[in-house]
């Protein structure tokens, strides 16, 4: 995990890139999340200070939007599409299978910080449904049998 001083420095650079423009708050938070994979508390405080926005408002925005995470996320982010097209093609059985395999619920990260499980509503690849996006890779026509294979591979790769 990054040191507090690093977080503050990086945050300042990001705010500067957006020229401190207050309407860019969401874009700033998106950049911070991209840099750290989540929104560290220190970064949120630093954003408020640097942009002249009360910390309460930064927190409001950070918690309003689904895309932001206030907790550190795992090395691999598993996003299960639960959009309507995937739902009618059995996404909930796939979700259950991931929950059983990773032993976590959506929104959680497993103990060794390898995997986070998240839900999304339609990733725009409904033809491949049910779809799971892991990091940036799309896995279409998911089956429960494929879940074991994919997770197995990622675990191997991580070792």
């Amino acid at each position: 995990m990054s040191k507090v001083s690093d977080i503050k420095l990086k945050t300042k650079q990001i705010v500067k890139k957006h020229k401190g423009d207050k309407s860019a708050l969401i874009a700033v938070l998106q950049d911070i999340q991209e840099a750290f994979n989540y929104l560290p508390k220190e970064a949120l405080i630093a954003v408020g200070d640097a942009m002249g926005i009360p910390a309460s408002r930064v927190y409001e925005v950070a918690t309003f939007y689904n895309a932001f995470s206030l907790n550190p996320r795992g090395e691999h982010i598993v996003k299960i599409c639960v959009g309507t097209a995937c739902h009618v093609r059995g996404a909930s059985a796939i979700l259950d299978k991931f929950e059983r395999t990773l032993l976590i619920k959506p929104g959680e990260t497993n103990q060794d910080q390898k995997f986070s499980l998240e839900l999304v509503n339609c990733v725009g690849a409904c033809a491949l449904g049910p779809v799971v996006v892991i990091d940036t890779e799309y896995h279409g026509q998911m089956t429960m049998a494929k879940v074991d294979k994919i997770i197995g591979k990622l675990k191997e790769g991580a070792q």
Binding site: S23, I26, N66
Partner: peptide, 19 residues
Amino acid sequence: GGAFVCGESSALFASIEGR
């Protein structure tokens, strides 16, 4: 930021304004 309600016009304006 991944919020369905932001497709609604006044919510969308708020979102562009950074709120």
